[in-house]
Amino acid sequence: MQYMLLIYTDDTTEPAPGTAEFGTYMQRYMEFTQEVKDKGLFVAGDALEKVNTATTVRVRKNEVDTTDGPFAETKEVLGGYYLLDCKDLDQAIEYAAKIPAAELGSIEIRPVMVFD
């Protein structure tokens, strides 16, 4: 069963690029990705550009409305995701807790919907 692990972080609490902490942080991400690949759980996973690059699109009355920025102003924003194939929620929780950002922000686990 596939689970989407959505990584929410607050930019200001994550290590800044160029610092030694950032190097360690990235190293841990690479190790995590390797681990889920080795275990055969990895389906997909990416980091996203910062939220100030986001564009929001709505269609209302057949008109496309494009605006800058995210839909809502919250401190923690979506920064990346993993799509994993886990046997159950407990396994998904186990791996969500291993994502480095779990210690700074939060991971939202969403089961991927299966259409019968």
């Binding site: 159950d88 929620l89 407990d90 186990e94 089961p111």
Partner: peptide, 14 residues
């Protein structure tokens, strides 16, 4: 059902 919360006794680390 939807999130597949398992029907089992949890693993030692949990």
């Amino acid at each position: 059902k939807a999130a597949n919360i398992p029907y089992k006794v949890p693993d030692p680390d949990q």
